[in-house]
Design a protein around this nucleic acid. Structure first.
Length: 267
DNA sequence: ATGGTGGTGGAACCA
């Protein structure tokens, strides 16, 4: 069973590339982030024509997550319990379209788009940390209650957990950038402490393997990327992993997303 | 070449 996660940065703009990639990669399940559309604009046919069921969750041009599967798609859940809401001053806080789950085959998959903290002192940073902590509490309880549970937390985590996950940690510290702070890393490591494992890193341990390159500043040709997209597996999933890779080719050429697909194959 | 983005929606915001 082949599982992938991919922040496509607009499902409409990326429809052809997503279709071609799914055919090439032959994945069974694809967790998608940043669809940037509502249901009425979602390109359902891209998936249906290729034999996939798909569930989407999106309100507008912001965020948006989906799961496509050709091994079943049951128990679709939108937002996790008590998912923190965000609202600008004077506006009603809303639970954003950042989490959708489905059971595909025998695995519970979450497609997650973790909030971007924007800046170290920004109110979005505390939102991000709270959001992650709330999710972690649930994720921890799922495997505490059932140690055999097969769960994959897939998505754009907007965190570089290790210094080697960015092209130059000194640049990030000097410019007070996000994604690398102790608070963000602690939030991410909470999932590892709870028993989840990054099932891709063991197969992609070489330096310079990233999943995201900013469109600006020629980051891709300069090889200045970040590893921020992860497949975290519960213990029962982790022991099934046979191989994994990051598809850097998908970042090349005209019309690429700024993120690459990240893939793991389970027995 | 001292700059160099892309998506959405139709200006400004987001990443």
């Amino acid at each position: 069973m082949k599982i992938a996660t991919w922040n496509v940065n607009s499902m409409r703009a990326r429809a052809d590339r997503v279709e071609a990639w799914m055919q090439k990669a032959d994945v069974d399940v694809l967790a998608i982030q940043e669809t940037k559309c509502k249901d009425e604009n979602f390109p359902w046919e891209v998936f249906e024509h290729n034999g996939y069921d798909v569930a989407h969750f999106g309100f507008n041009q912001w965020n948006g997550v989906a799961i496509a599967s050709r091994v079943g798609l049951k128990g679709v859940e939108r937002t996790f319990a008590d998912q923190p809401a965000f609202g600008k001053a004077g506006k009603e806080p809303v639970q954003e379209a950042r989490a959708i789950a489905a059971t595909c085959g025998d695995v519970r998959i979450w497609s997650l788009y973790v909030p971007n903290g924007r800046a170290r002192e920004d109110e979005h940073m505390s939102y991000k940390l709270t959001w992650l902590n709330q999710l972690r509490e649930h994720a921890e309880s799922w495997i505490t209650e059932d140690p055999q549970a097969q769960i994959v937390l897939a998505g754009d985590w907007n965190i570089a957990p290790q210094d080697s996950d960015v092209w130059d940690i000194d640049f990030f510290e000097k410019n007070q950038m996000t994604h690398v702070t102790a608070e963000e890393r602690t939030a991410f490591n909470g999932f590892l402490d709870a028993g989840y494992a990054d099932v891709v890193r063991p197969y992609t341990a070489d330096p310079g393997i990233y999943t995201y390159w900013d469109y600006t500043n020629l980051r891709f040709p300069k090889r200045e990327g970040m590893r921020i997209d992860f497949l975290l597996g519960s213990p029962a999933v982790a022991q099934r992993v046979q191989s994994a890779y990051v598809d850097k080719d998908e970042r090349r050429g005209k019309g690429a997303s700024d993120h690459t697909p990240v893939v793991a194959e389970l027995s």
